[in-house]
């Protein structure tokens, strides 16, 4: 119920914005697009990241190209956490807000949030810690108006590390919550 209202109000904003002759529409609809000179900044890593997602996209599922557009903030899916911490840092607020906005305006889309931890300690306890991270992301999204029924938070614990050397840089990369949309999991 809550999200339909927000969706309505967002449409309203869109309507009103369309009515106005002045083009100064800050924030809201578009997303903060960084106008990068094409090619230069989008390195090979970016294109590598897109390919497997397309492969997993099960054909016609890629109904939302903005989710995969490397220039769109929605293509960013990871929230990193501090050591032994389960609060979302300020630097990830806008990312979480962008995804909340997408989910509220697409109520049929579902999201799976996977929490991760570094490799140190018990696997099962780490699974519970990963859950705390995915729950933190889920909590933030629901506070931003996303319906609970669109969200599932789960944990992968230390089982799916994004890198595997025993270094602080690697450990911090693994203290992570990942957001996956329908069709991506």
């Amino acid at each position: 119920m809550k999200y339909t209202r927000i969706t309505l109000s967002l449409i309203t904003v869109g309507l009103l914005a369309a009515c106005s002759s002045s083009p100064s529409t800050e924030g809201q609809s578009g997303a903060t697009v960084e106008d990068r000179p094409s090619g230069a900044a989008s390195s090979g890593v970016d294109s590598n990241r897109v390919v497997p997602v397309d492969a997993n996209g099960a054909g016609g599922k890629s109904a939302y190209p903005e989710l995969k557009d490397p220039k769109n903030i929605l293509s960013k899916r990871s929230v990193l956490f501090d050591y032994d911490s389960y609060v979302i840092k300020d630097e990830y607020r806008s990312l979480v807000e962008a995804h909340a906005k997408f989910l509220t305006s697409h109520p049929s889309v579902k999201m799976l949030i996977q929490g991760n931890t570094d490799e140190r300690g018990s696997r099962e306890y780490n699974l519970a810690l990963g859950q705390k991270r995915s729950d933190a992301v889920k909590k933030a999204l629901t506070l931003l108006g996303v319906s609970e029924s669109q969200l599932e938070s789960v944990s992968l614990g230390e089982e799916k590390p994004s890198c595997s050397d025993a270094s602080e840089a690697c450990w911090s990369a693994n203290r992570r919550g990942d957001m996956l949309y329908s069709g991506e999991f």
Binding site: L112, Q114, E152, S155
Partner: peptide, 9 residues
């Protein structure tokens, strides 16, 4: 046992 074959435990 716990299996992650469904992308979750």
């Amino acid at each position: 046992y716990v299996s992650f074959e469904a992308k979750k435990p």
